[in-house]
Amino acid sequence: MSLIAPADQQKLRDAFSEMTRPVHLLFFTQALGCETCVQTRGILDELPLLSDKIAIDEVNFVLEPDQAAKYGVDRVPAIAVEYEDAGERRDSRIRFLGAPSGYEFVSLVRAVILAGGGESMLSPAGRARLASVDKPVTMQVFTTPT
């Protein structure tokens, strides 16, 4: 049984149809001691069913520590959003820590569409300002599952 209602599945299919390039969700997980990893896998498994441009790449957090370090992931469940551009894998530098349920799921969907070539929600002025940043910036946005 799907976790997503049929009407919402159709809305998501329509939204994902905007995508022009493949998106990979790197799902960092571990088998033991991670309740929400199972929940997260269940949510993520729904997405490739709604778009052939979305793939889930599972990364074992315990067995592949170098992958976790590469993506700045120090806990699970975590998701890193990547995309393919001209055949090359690129990191969107968008991460999700914790299960993407509730409103976080909407944020994840937006991130997937953006990485997949969809329109930015930012204004041209905002994008120009951000493009001028010349030092590393790490932003953590705290949310709750409501």
Partner: peptide, 28 residues
């Protein structure tokens, strides 16, 4: 914003799952 600049990395953190981080940054 991360998508608009190669310098920016963005984390969406689920605060209830990571109470240690929420405490560290005094998320009220």
């Amino acid at each position: 914003m991360a998508f608009a600049s190669p310098q920016i990395t963005a984390y969406a953190v689920e605060a209830t799952e990571y109470p240690d981080l929420a405490r560290k940054y005094q998320v009220s």
